[in-house]
Nucleic acid binder design. Structure first.
Lengths: 148, 148
DNA sequence: TTCACTGCAAACGCTTTGCATATGG
DNA sequence: CCATATGCAAAGCGTTTGCAGTGAA
């Protein structure tokens, strides 16, 4: 699926979500979705704001936060809270569930998948009588370039 | 090891850390450590501030943040960034490495241990040529009281 | 027409910082 | 002594909120 097809697909998902929830299909919302799917990697609100400012669309921070909330709800993006400050986001269209390795020296991010995570979620959930919906896992250390 | 012995032990560790780094051994720092080791569970800066205010010691927020930083450095506490706001802390003296289940409805926190986490760290580290030092894992969902 | 959405700016809340004062070494 | 710590209050900074104006349905 190329970039164009992905955009059509997420556009459709977002449209259906907005319709089903009785939300309005405003041009701002679709412009934001479009900009997000142009992002190669992780991004934050400030970056998105600057990029859209440079282009045709200038949206307010309030609208950005509002729209990111909607996109989170229909799972078109994922939110990461790496530190205590700026939240990071990434697009997540049909992407395989994955976690992250973070280099504490150079900030490199590597994605990985491990089926044992799902097993742990199931087992720990069962054992504690918890309905586990979601998780966040980050491994911290030094990448090959940074370890001595 | 009882509460008294634990306090003696962490006191010694903190003293040695401060000395080795050339930091001053101020009464505020030890009062804060003491108050933290009276906490049964997780706590945040505000809670610590209120508790100390009620007792003999009234320390400023600035000093609390400063001291928490030192205690993090010598691994006598662990810091959690559950949301984008208030950071949570917990004491970590020789406690078994554990992770957390968080109820997204009532904020209940349950701790759990799973040896598979360590296996994942080893395997993913090896596979990606990463030296994995640390990790954070949180499972989110509904606890037995909150799931419908 | 109408009410949800947007933009703007002010408010929020946790954390950090600046500065005068106090004190450990 | 004097450089480091403390207390206080102000500043920072990402995020949220209030409100008047706008535009999708």
């Amino acid at each position: 699926m190329n970039q164009k097809e992905i955009k059509n697909s997420v556009n459709k998902i977002f449209t259906e979500y907005l319709t089903s929830q009785g939300y309005r299909k405003t041009p701002e919302r679709f412009a934001i979705l479009d900009e997000i799917y142009d992002c190669k990697t992780h991004f934050d609100v400030e970056l998105l704001y600057m990029r859209m400012k440079e282009k045709k669309y200038r949206v307010s921070k309030a609208t950005l936060y509002n729209t990111l909330e909607l996109l989170l709800a229909c799972k078109l993006i994922i939110k990461h809270q790496f530190g205590q400050n700026t939240a990071q986001y990434e697009k997540s269209h049909k992407s395989k569930q994955h976690d992250h390795l973070l280099c504490i020296a150079c900030s490199r991010i590597i994605e990985f998948c491990d089926p044992r995570i799902q097993e742990i979620k199931n087992d720990i959930g069962d054992f504690n009588n918890f309905q586990v919906n979601d998780h966040s896992l980050y491994l911290y250390g030094y990448c090959e370039k940074c370890k001595k």
